[in-house]
Design a protein around this nucleic acid. Sequence first.
DNA 1: CCAAAACTGTACTCATGGTACGGTTTCTCC
DNA 2: GGAGAAACCGTACCATGAGTACAGTTTTGG
Lengths: 211, 211
Amino acid sequence: MSTVLETPKGKGEATRERILEIAEAAVLAKGFGATSIEEVIAEAGLTKSGFFYHFKDKNALAREMVRRYVATNDRLFDEIFGRGQQLSDDPLQAFLISLKLLAETMADLPNGHPGCLIASICYQERLFDREIRDLTAQSVRDWNARFRTILDGIAAVHPPREPVDLDDVADMLSCIVDGAIIMSKTLNDPGRLERQVMLFRSLVKLMFAPN
Amino acid sequence: MSTVLETPKGKGEATRERILEIAEAAVLAKGFGATSIEEVIAEAGLTKSGFFYHFKDKNALAREMVRRYVATNDRLFDEIFGRGQQLSDDPLQAFLISLKLLAETMADLPNGHPGCLIASICYQERLFDREIRDLTAQSVRDWNARFRTILDGIAAVHPPREPVDLDDVADMLSCIVDGAIIMSKTLNDPGRLERQVMLFRSLVKLMFAPN
DNA sequence: CCAAAACTGTACTCATGGTACGGTTTCTCC
DNA sequence: GGAGAAACCGTACCATGAGTACAGTTTTGG
């Protein structure tokens, strides 16, 4: 309370963050069930006791991982779609700009996109408790709602030329990103993710742009 | 060779199949790393010795699982896209019919789509050997090539109204299906998968149909 | 009926996840 | 600079699961 800085961040907080980061990478590479606490703490450079000081069990680790992932993603979306709105008053143009930014962001990852934690968890649902599954579900709903709002704004100005359901179009963006991440990883070709986002962008243009 | 039936199928073959089916369901629900041989054999009703009679180790099980999954999927695609071609001479109409069939097939799963094994494996790549990763990569490439061929046939008759890359459009179908499966599972709403396939269908129409 | 196929049973090793708990260092604040 | 909390270490322990070895038993197909 007395410090001026926003994030006092005791030493413990830093360790927590390090654990979460290492764990997330491991989970995305081998799955939660196959990610051992031992390997995480080995890489983090602390002991088992130290780990359990921060997280009461593996499920607590998972919960915090998801919270962290969702928060990071939310911030990224805020920035990307906020930036689009700054750069154009037309909602369609703003969205197209944001999609381009999104594609570039995806392409900028040096070793390709590390993966979507929500997708990873979805394929291991039985390992997680109700709270975690609710967390992932809510975050997906939030993202879809965000896109839906944007699309509403566009449709108000540019009536779509075909009767498409905007809820489905909003869903589609998440679907394409998740699907493209999988394809990129499977084929070991990071470029596909960017291309899919750009194709989605073309289709948005096709749907709304006056011909 | 002397039998008339296509599949003589000794008793061992049936057991193998049962193991693979149980294992696949378990892997899609909790991941490969968290799927124990013990639980699989418990559900299959045989002993550990019995299991290792059929598969030399867990990786052999994974290999056969993937082979089985890919073969099943190939057959399904053969049927769906073959049927489309039977029902219309126009390649675009044929594809639209097939996509409708695909959407219906997806919607017909009683408890929603169980999941894509390739996607599941992609998020646990470190657990699998080179051979398995090559298998999944090749199957994805094959599916993409199949769709690309269809799109080529369409484009030859109906020039696309926007300059879209047909390779990307072909990729998109797999991406959308994989992504929609994840969303359906995460939100526990099986309907989304069907809707996404139908939306893709609308977009194909929008891309190629003369206005 | 016989040989191969398809298992069962037991008994073990080794590695690892996860728990429990008491002790020790390091930080922080008064 | 001392007290107490936060952050961490050490060790001992149990349960589970992968995988091996191998001898025995049932089942099946020709």
